[in-house]
Amino acid sequence: MIKSVLIFNNHGKPRITKFYQQIDIGTQQALLQEIYSLVSKRPDTACNFLEGSQMLGGKDTRVIYRHYATLYFVFVVDESESELGILDLIQVFVESLDRCFENVCELDLIFHFEEVHHILSEVISGGMVLETNISEIVSAYSEANKLKKRSGAIATISGSGAGAVARDLGANLANTVTSTLQNTLQTTVSATFPTFRRNTGFNT
């Protein structure tokens, strides 16, 4: 089971928090802070498995993360998940985001947090992996997006213009993401993609 998915930036600001177990809001914030403080200390050359969490202690819990440009993607999972598999799953999620937002960057996640949640819900449902095929994920999302527009959405992705700012800054994740993998799970697991780690950081 996946216990939680957290996305936060280099300064520890949460972008998405998803807990698949019901945890009170104070603990959620404390967990976020603890994981941030541990993860942010690690150099990008270190492995993607985090140790030393006090709150998440317990043999059964693993913290697996990836660092893309300005963002950390952190998955908290239990023993039934494959460590290397989860690393790939993070990659699948990020690639899906990249396709849905067309060159995703941190600002996209900030201003479209509902959409990001929606994409995540097409990858993971109730803490279990729902879909690992990126095209399936993307098509489910865009289908829903069309329906949303028809039903008169408050804000649509292309509307809010946050992306434009970021693109000017040239700090989108897309440059870093693309290329490498066609289909992670089918080919290999990967593990490290040094190019993703390029830190083009813009501060938010």
Binding site: S82, E83, L84, G85, L87, D88, L185, T187, T188, V189, S190, A191
Partner: peptide, 9 residues
């Protein structure tokens, strides 16, 4: 297998 994750498991 060429997938390290599968090999590992």
């Amino acid at each position: 297998t060429s997938a390290m994750s599968l090999l590992y498991e």
